[in-house]
Computed example of a mutant assay.
Amino acid sequence: MARQLTRTDHMIRQFDTVLRTLMPGGAQATRPSPSTLVTDDVMSEQERQHSAGLMRVNHTEEVCVQALYQGQSLTAGYTEGHEQLNTAVNEELDHLAWCKARLHELDSHTSRLDPLFYVTSFGVGAIAGRLGNSVSLGFVNAAEERVGKRLEDHMTRLPMADRRSRAVVEKIIEEEAHHAHNALEAGGKRFSLPARLGIRAVDALVSRVAYRL
């Protein structure tokens, strides 16, 4: 029989996730990147820089989602609903690693403000967790849906020649939709329109900053 995880075990797992999210080379994908079998067409320097900016935004958003999950698990406890999202956490780490690898291929860097974004998102997640399971999981649903919509927008903005980035983004869109759905299935409350507009506004601000920095 498998040993039941203690509070200490969960805290160690959280700390490990923090390190893998923020430390250089910390996030290691457990699955091959969707871009593995894809070859780029020729891109201009302007197209390369634009792709790098968009992929930097995507990487930062994955940092924020990781922090959100971690903050919630700290204050909401280890409910059955949150345990159902463990697969999502692992897939988000893959997304993080894929985006970072693509940035390296584009000769660019992750956002210099990622630690600040992480701390802020962790705090938001911790507050959401204190408000109860339905609100906590509802926030996951709203955040994941917003990430999905932003990625769909990026698919229209990425250069057609950047086939490797497009392959990564396309796969992440698919999995973010599952994460959003699973959060509701696990007991999440669907947020009101004003709350979703607020999340959209914050997402837009983070995207503008991460694109440049």
Rank of each mutant, 00 (worst) to 15 (best):
A204G: 10
P194Q: 07
L197G: 05
L22W: 00
S44K: 06
I173L: 09
L37G: 00
D114I: 06
I12A: 14
E105G: 13
L131N: 14
D41H: 13
D41G: 15
K171T: 06
C99K: 03
F15Y: 14
A88K: 03
G138F: 02
V202K: 07
S73A: 10
R56G: 05
A186P: 09
A142K: 01
G187D: 00
R7S: 14
E62D: 15
L205V: 13
E170Q: 15
N90G: 11
L137Q: 14
N141L: 00
L19T: 02
P34T: 04
K100P: 01
T36V: 07
M1N: 05
L193K: 05
V147D: 10
V63G: 07
S121V: 03
A128T: 08
R196Y: 08
L197F: 03
R56T: 07
G123F: 09
E47Q: 15
L5M: 13
Y69S: 01
H178R: 07
P159S: 11
S192R: 00
V63W: 06
L22A: 02
Q72R: 09
V63Q: 08
A180D: 07
P24C: 00
D40Y: 10
F139I: 04
N182K: 12
L103Y: 07
P115Y: 13
S121R: 05
H10K: 14
L103H: 09
A210E: 12
E144D: 04
L93V: 01
R13M: 15
M155S: 05
C64A: 14
D41C: 11
V206R: 00
S44W: 08
Q4R: 11
W98S: 09
T8G: 03
F117I: 08
Y118P: 03
V206G: 01
R212H: 10
P34E: 02
S33I: 13
M43D: 13
A52G: 13
K189T: 08
L158S: 04
V140K: 04
L93F: 03
A167D: 13
N182E: 14
L131Q: 15
L213E: 10
R3D: 12
L74K: 13
S35I: 02
L106H: 05
A27V: 04
K171M: 08
T30R: 14
L205T: 10
I172F: 12
Q49E: 13
A97M: 00
L131G: 12
G187F: 03
H179I: 02
